[in-house]
Amino acid sequence: MKSAPYLLSLPALLLFGAIVIIPLVMTVLLSFHDWGQYKGIEPVFVLKNWHEVFTDSYFLEMFWRTFRIAFFVTLLAAVLGAPEAYILNRMKSPWRGLFLLVILGPLLISVVARTLGWALLFGGNSGLINKALVSMGLISAPLPFMFTETGVIVALTHVLMPYMVLAVWAALQRLDPQIENAAVALGAGPFTVLRRIVLPQVMPGILSGAIIVFALAASAFATPAIIGGRRLKVASTLAYDEFLNTLNWPLGAAVAVLLLVALVAIVVGASRLVERRYAQVFG
């Protein structure tokens, strides 16, 4: 009878294995194969691709850029998203629902459409915002947006913000308003209540939102592809290019696997840290 749970989960396990594990294993194997301009992929075991990824400074710079972008996106999303969720939570009934829809609505729109929207607003010299800023005399030349890290960070922050808002919102929902009242009764002003009472209690929410946003930002494809283009590559767009343009699949596989491993390590490490920090306090 003890085997029953395992047997029952077998179909799901098989499906999981077929659609996740097998392609993953194949990608890992692929990264050890050889490739040449004229001979194509050779199914032999070489460390060439891994050697290249780890020694060529181009890859180092590109991975560094990927995680730098992810870091700033996460920071921006937290700094903007947490107050956004707090304000949303303080709103009265009809407005709250409406603004929640406004914030979460973008999730229903394709990432490509949203990113193109940013490209239209900021892109080139004829971008709407640049034109407005120049004509108002606030800036002398259009701000570079397309093919810049700033552009990718701004657009990705917008795309991923809802995840942060949702995570913080969930944490705020669990707060007992009487706890804030208790602080007020002891003489705390509104700002002190926010900093000493509310913020520490929603910190786990902000951190879990940050982990989600970081992982999604580091592995994002559409937004860096459209805003960064081929001039500003990140890990995912580089892997894509190796697969579909250069046709160097083994090298693309090595980049993809390295991105995956690095991300898993960072996310698991961060979750562990967060859990350990809060296990005692919030059980």
């Binding site: 007992d176 009487q178 208790a182 602080a183 520490p200």
Partner: peptide, 14 residues
């Protein structure tokens, strides 16, 4: 300046 004990205690959990 009142001292209050709330029905739900309302202790600061953190």
């Amino acid at each position: 300046g009142l001292g209050i004990v709330f029905q739900s205690y309302a202790l600061f959990p953190h």
